[in-house]
Simulated assay, not measured.
Amino acid sequence: MSYKKVALLVFSTLLFAINCREVHKEELKETTNIAVSHEAEKSAILQTLNDETKAAFQRDYEGWKEKWVHDPTISKTYINFADSSFTEAIGWQEISGFVKNFFKEHPEPEPLPALLDDIEVRLYGNGAWVTYEQKDSLRGLKRETRLMEKVDGTWKIASMQTTIYGFKREE
């Protein structure tokens, strides 16, 4: 093999290796950006959930309603194993009416549960599936699932399912 062919082969191999390295750097950068973006979105969702909880427990209707999507297809479901009850509301009008009525019947603020610091989040573009557990001093252990939607750059609740286990399951 001539020196020119060897030199060309070595040069081509080097170019290929350099190009692969640059592609790998771009992939790493993209992966890092996705991770940073996921953490930022998770943090924003966490803030929305904690603010909604604070408003609900403090009986702040205006603060509470800011955290929800106002749409006829949203839902809110409570399953309470501790007292064998179940409630479901579909659509903003029904959910809003339920909360207004609850606040009217129970006007005194409740003790605020420990705010969330860890949630599981699966992002889907402008939507997110969120799950977590929370201990409530009046109801015991709760498992919550929230469907979140990003509306005008702000995460809002589009669906909520709360399963209340009470105090027995915590042992």
Rank of each mutant, 00 (worst) to 15 (best):
A17L: 13
E105T: 14
K4S: 14
R59K: 11
A56I: 02
Q161H: 11
L15V: 11
W92R: 11
Q47A: 13
K150D: 01
F11R: 02
S37H: 12
L14G: 09
V99N: 09
W92H: 09
D83F: 06
V69A: 03
K65D: 05
A40L: 10
K5E: 15
E94S: 15
H106S: 07
F98P: 03
E171Q: 15
N50R: 09
E26A: 07
T48M: 04
A40E: 13
V36P: 00
R59L: 02
I74T: 14
I45H: 03
E52D: 11
K65F: 01
Q134C: 07
F81K: 06
E120A: 07
A56N: 09
G153K: 02
Y132H: 14
R143A: 10
E62P: 02
V69G: 02
I90E: 11
E133M: 10
W68M: 08
F16T: 10
S137D: 05
D60G: 02
Q93W: 09
N101L: 06
V10N: 00
T31E: 15
T131S: 12
G97E: 11
P111G: 10
Q58G: 04
I79L: 08
E149Q: 11
S159V: 04
S75R: 15
S43L: 06
W64I: 03
E88G: 07
P72S: 13
A114R: 11
I119G: 04
S84G: 10
S137T: 09
Q58S: 14
A114C: 05
L15R: 01
I164F: 00
Q161M: 08
A55H: 03
H106Y: 09
K67Y: 01
S75V: 07
K150L: 01
P72D: 15
H70Y: 01
Q161K: 04
K142R: 08
Q93P: 04
L28W: 00
S43R: 12
V121S: 02
S96L: 08
T145E: 06
E108R: 13
E133D: 08
F167I: 07
V99L: 05
A114L: 12
V99C: 07
A55V: 06
E110D: 08
D117F: 06
N101P: 01
H38K: 09
K142V: 03
K135P: 00
H38G: 03
E108D: 12
I90M: 14
E133Q: 11
G153Y: 01
S43A: 13
H38T: 11
I119Q: 02
L14C: 14
K76R: 13
C20E: 14
N19H: 10
A35M: 12
H70T: 05
S12F: 01
H24D: 08
E30C: 05
R59Y: 02
E27V: 05
E170S: 15
K100R: 15
T162M: 05
G166K: 00
F103K: 06
G91W: 05
W68L: 11
